[in-house]
Design a protein around this nucleic acid. Structure first.
Length: 178
DNA sequence: CCAGACGTTGTT
DNA sequence: GTCTGG
DNA sequence: CCAGACGTTGTT
DNA sequence: GTCTGG
């Protein structure tokens, strides 16, 4: 099982993993923490979708960004193996890029969602860095939709499918009343 | 030359 | 491990 | 981002 | 309430 939060091979301390949960697509080829993984250890992170929050007053309303057909997304990832601790630890990070128009109202970044036709090239060690860089664009508009889900997802302790229970957004009109 | 950083913007 | 800043 | 700390050695 | 560490 890989742990989320990439620990570079040279790291003295695994704590760096707390701040390497994402790698910026624009710069990962050059960053010491990511460049070796970018060159040799690219991976796919399957996900039902991803969550971003809309801030309404003091409330945070979670939205699940997903495919309309409910198929999993193929997120671009990098992985590493760290052997400086008592046990080897394998870790990964999720590549992020600029948000597309659908996500931008909530956040300026989003995970790199690979088009089906790009998956093989992303994983192939023969693919040139230039070709890889070219496929790292904000996801095509229209591939994803957003759906309001339970605020259960706002608490990290709730690690279960109920987090993705769909909310009827229209109910918010009543819930917002003073 | 050595010391210190090396990463992102956040719900593992 | 490699680069940067001092 | 969330969780957890936050302070001093004592009588205004 | 606000800052810090993870």
């Amino acid at each position: 099982m890989l742990r989320w939060g990439l620990i570079p091979a040279w790291a003295k301390d695994e704590k760096i993993g707390y701040s390497t949960i994402n790698a910026r697509a624009e710069t990962m080829a050059d960053k010491p923490a990511f460049r070796e993984a970018f060159r040799w250890r690219r991976c796919i992170v399957p996900a039902s979708g991803f969550i971003e929050w809309e801030t309404v007053g003091k409330k945070k309303l979670p939205y699940h960004f997903r495919r309309p057909d409910h198929l999993p997304l193929s997120l671009a990832g990098l992985w590493e193996r760290w052997t400086k601790g008592s046990e080897p630890i394998e870790t990964f990070t999720i590549v992020v890029t600029e948000a597309n128009d659908l996500v931008r109202p909530m956040h300026d970044r989003m995970p790199e969602v690979l088009a089906d036709g790009d998956i093989d090239r992303w994983l192939d060690q023969e693919t040139s860095p230039e070709t890889l860089q070219a496929m790292l664009r904000p996801t095509d508009e229209g591939l994803l939709m957003k759906e309001r889900v339970s605020t259960r997802v706002n608490n990290v302790k709730n690690d279960d499918p109920a987090c993705l229970a769909v909310e009827d957004a229209s109910l918010d009109l009543f819930q917002e009343a003073p």
